[in-house]
Amino acid sequence: MDPFDEHLEEYLEGDDEQANVDSIDEQTDGGSMDVDHEEEDNNKENAEDKKKTYKRTRGIVRLTKIIADKIKGIKRHLRFNSRGQSIGTPNRELQCYSGMQAKSMVPINIDNWREVPKSILDSLWKDVNLAFHLDENMRKNIIGSVGNKWRQFKCNLNKKFIVPYLNDPSLLEANPHGLDKPPPSYHIEETHWKEFVKRRTSKEFQDFRKLQQERRNNLQYPHRTSRHSYTELEADLWGTTEQIDRSILWKEARKDSSGNYVTERDKVKGEAIEDMLEQRKEGKLIEIGTNDILTQVLGTAEHPGRVRGQSRGVTQRDYFHKPIGGGGGSKRLAEKTN
């Protein structure tokens, strides 16, 4: 019997949240509010709590099935899009499993993902290969995904179990040993927890945390997709537009579940993208390299590294200089399993 079976809910807790950077994403209250607004806010919170409970329950069921099949020697096949990116239900299962690995196989007292020992990385790769049919060329992206979830897990631990004491010193006065022991549900080693708390309560980290919060607050166009990646969004939109351009993905990621833009700023950029898409159809638009529709609408050059409007792992070379249909090992694996 897999040792994680009894604690699936704890390992899944916190997976509802999306981490874009290794930071603590927090929302501060906007001050007092009248009774009507408070009631409306409470209703929203209750609805959100129900949504999270549903997602967590669904995740537990999904993870239980993956582990049960792994014990039986049954591996899951992934599906890929034209760029060799994993999509659909199999990808959600892989992400769910990766989240469990991040919480249970990588110690939280390690300060930086680059410092994780190779032996642990090898164990992660070996373990996930017992549950999924994978190609060696996929290792970097999958291990990187575990790293992102590990950072988010540490952010969630900090936000839930440490920050309250920092924000309200009276809590620590009432419970002087409140930070001495790790939360029992996660089965974290006590020595690891103490090192983690020491780091997170240090002035160095508090300054870093403040800087990351300021950067977060300065984001002009945050996406609204939560855990839904650009890759999954592209899979949802496939067939509804003539071309899944990254500008289309970008504007759709700024809409709520009803299909409306969340802010007026998002709406202005979204409508500008739609206008330029029409110009492209009419042959009136000039696009060279990275200076495509999205770059022209946003008015800022593409930053080296990640590609806006695309999921993690997509480089400028992948998006702008490779023909659609690439994907290396992922594409070969897809062909083998179809």
Rank of each mutant, 00 (worst) to 15 (best):
R227I: 02
K284T: 07
T28G: 13
T53A: 11
R317C: 12
I24F: 13
R209F: 04
K267Q: 05
V21H: 08
G328Q: 05
M33E: 15
L78F: 01
I120N: 03
D245W: 06
T53W: 12
V268N: 13
K203W: 12
M33Y: 07
E6P: 06
A47D: 14
A47Q: 14
Q27M: 05
P184L: 00
R92V: 00
P90F: 03
L249V: 08
M138S: 10
K269W: 11
G59F: 04
K251V: 10
T240C: 04
P304F: 06
I74C: 04
D29S: 15
E278L: 15
R92G: 02
S258K: 15
Q27P: 05
G313D: 02
L179V: 00
G84S: 04
V268T: 13
E287Q: 11
L121Q: 06
K331D: 05
K72H: 03
E232K: 14
F208S: 11
I110L: 09
I273V: 09
W150Q: 01
E302I: 10
E6N: 12
D36G: 03
T191P: 05
I244G: 07
H321C: 13
G144Q: 01
T225C: 12
I66T: 02
R114L: 05
E271C: 09
M138Y: 02
D256T: 11
G239L: 02
N81W: 03
V268P: 10
K149N: 09
I71P: 02
R79S: 13
